[in-house]
């Protein structure tokens, strides 16, 4: 019976990948951290995440660090007058009572100087630095090259 319970627990916990884990720091909730597989280590990887600020004070994501990349930076994809460019974002605002997404076509972490190619199924930690709340580390799931986001039960808001 004990084994059966253990097995059941493992079966049900297995599909809930780490991208679906939730980490909190102060009033901030950080979840759905994911990345895409890369072809080799010569091209930058990408980092996406959702941050919810349930407090009453505005905060901002001011930087990211990870052992997976020598030069991780925040960028924003901007499509203006039919031209896509990708300016460096000094910080990503996380206003009080709001959620912000680093997601395809918008803010994203660009992971340059990858230490190794990112393979689907791998995971790596990323430490997010917030202006007010401080630092928090999340585990990032590497999804397929063609993934549009993690498949979490509560995702897709």
């Amino acid at each position: 019976m004990k084994h059966f319970l253990l097995a059941t627990t493992l079966i049900f916990s297995a599909p809930a990948a780490m991208a679906c884990e939730t980490v909190t720091i102060g009033d901030l909730t950080v979840e759905h951290a994911w990345s895409k597989a890369t072809i080799g280590a010569g091209r930058p990887g990408v980092f996406y995440v959702e941050i919810k600020n349930s407090g009453t004070t505005d905060d901002a994501l001011v930087g990211i660090t990870t052992p997976a990349a020598g030069m991780p930076m925040l960028h924003e994809t901007v499509v203006q007058d039919g031209i896509a460019s990708m300016p460096h974002a000094m910080s990503v605002p996380v206003p009080a009572g709001q959620s912000v997404q680093l997601a395809p076509g918008g803010y994203h972490g660009m992971l340059m100087e990858l230490t190794t190619a990112l393979k689907e199924g791998d995971s790596f930690p990323v430490t997010l630095s917030f202006e007010k709340s401080g630092e928090v580390t999340v585990n990032v799931d590497v999804l397929s090259l063609r993934a549009e986001g993690p498949d979490c039960a509560d995702a897709g808001q």
Partner: peptide, 13 residues
């Protein structure tokens, strides 16, 4: 361009 981490992979996908 292939060093583009966000827009190009999205479109190619």
């Amino acid at each position: 361009f292939t060093s583009c981490p966000d827009v190009c992979p999205t479109t190619l996908s």
